[in-house]
Nucleic acid binder design. Structure first.
Length: 367
DNA sequence: TCTTTCGGACCCTCAAACAC
DNA sequence: TGTTTGAGGGTCCGAAAGAA
């Protein structure tokens, strides 16, 4: 079987995490934005109830960005999206590991034969909830686990490094790539010390984001361009950095200064005044970046996390044709069925657990 | 629209390999 | 002998396909 690391690589972005109560900016997909209920809500209203959403900026879209002077992004939810940046914003690089804690899927130790056959969730009780739901409690019995094979020779193990980075559980707060910001040439701006902000300390399970780069010549920090603009946000006055909590005005602005980058725009972060879209990139340069990709400042030594792969038709199954050719069934399920067929009543055999239309619990799916 | 099916991701267990 | 590794074997999510 593939290693768990490899298996989990894509799953992190795919699974539904239960975000910790901490808000952070995000660098690039699949990094989420978290919500921090320790900060006041606009209008002093109550915090939204969990689960808190993630914001996955679409590729090519702007990205949440830690506000100036903050080593991490902690803000009311409505502010979270107020700091944005464009793809390829130097000198940031995504950390090699997201490490966002994921809620593990709970599994029962032994699913009943009906649920196992249907590949559906079971529970500890007998009859299980699903069997009761479908009126087949009498057939809700445990299957029989196969005994693990013994005497299987295994190759030599690759000993993992105990001191660090042995696995994905390494605290991201100690991720060297964070400390160097993934870029050896980058240094935190003066006066922006790590942890200097009033931000709620990140739990150990959460990444600590590095401080933002200094504003460019002229002193602008990214204006609060939104995509989409959070309701009720009041943009800061020109030339000012976004102020945390600014949405608290409670007065919905008539029009938010937000924009989408023009097509083909892969340029640097735009520091212009609020409401003014970035200039279009030079066509030649845009074309070059379209073909070779946006300017990436990623540490070449840092493994890049690819954006969530678009859903493919990989799960497309070829079904039984009109003229026969039954598909091979899952043998492991079939084995369970076979072993418990005397009590469960499901049809045994290694080729099929049950037949459609016979009311067998195995094919009663969840509604 | 609902139901059934099932690919494959995810999870747990535990024997083999390894360190001390 | 205790710990670590990683594969076996299981659960079940979620989407496709068929049925109603």
């Amino acid at each position: 079987m593939a290693s768990d690391q490899a298996k989990n690589a894509g799953a992190v972005a795919q699974e539904h995490h239960m975000p910790p109560y901490q808000a952070y900016g995000a660098y690039s997909p699949p990094f989420p934005v978290y919500y921090d209920p320790s900060h006041p809500e606009p209008n002093g209203g109550p915090h939204p109830a969990p689960p808190y959403i993630y914001h996955y900026p679409p590729p090519g879209m702007m990205y949440p960005f830690p506000p100036p002077g903050r080593s991490s992004f902690v803000a009311p939810f409505s502010v979270v999206l107020s700091y944005v940046r464009l793809v390829g914003f130097p000198p940031y690089a995504p950390p090699p590991q997201t490490n966002f804690q994921r809620v593990k899927r709970k599994q029962v130790k032994m699913a009943c034969t009906n649920c196992a056959n249907a590949c559906k969730r079971c529970d500890e009780h007998r009859p299980c909830e699903r069997c009761v739901k479908y009126g087949i409690p009498e057939t809700c019995v445990d299957g029989v686990r196969k005994e693990r094979q013994k005497g299987i020779k295994r190759g030599p193990y690759k000993r993992k490094n105990k001191s660090g980075g042995s696995d994905t559980a390494t605290s991201p707060t100690h991720n060297p790539s964070f400390e160097t910001n993934g870029d050896p040439t980058w240094h935190p701006p003066n006066g922006v010390a790590q942890g200097s902000a009033t931000a709620t300390p990140a739990p150990s399970s959460m990444p600590t984001f590095p401080p933002p780069p200094p504003p460019p010549e002229g002193g602008y920090y990214p204006p609060p361009y939104f995509y989409p603009p959070p309701p009720g946000f009041v943009p800061p006055s020109e030339g000012q950095a976004p102020v945390e909590g600014s949405p608290n005005s409670g007065v919905p602005p008539p029009m938010m200064p937000y924009y989408m980058p023009p097509p083909g725009y892969y340029g640097p972060p735009y520091y212009g005044p609020p409401g003014v879209p970035p200039p279009a990139m030079d066509p030649a340069q845009a074309e070059l970046q379209r073909t070779s990709g946006p300017p990436i400042d990623h540490d070449p030594d840092v493994e890049e996390i690819p954006p969530p792969a678009p859903k493919t038709n990989s799960k497309k199954r070829s079904r039984v044709g009109k003229d026969g050719q039954p598909k091979a069934k899952k043998t492991k399920v079939a084995a369970v069925v076979q072993e418990s067929s005397t009590s469960s009543g499901t049809t045994g055999g290694s080729d099929q657990a049950s037949e459609p239309g016979h009311g067998s619990p195995a094919e009663i799916g969840d509604a």
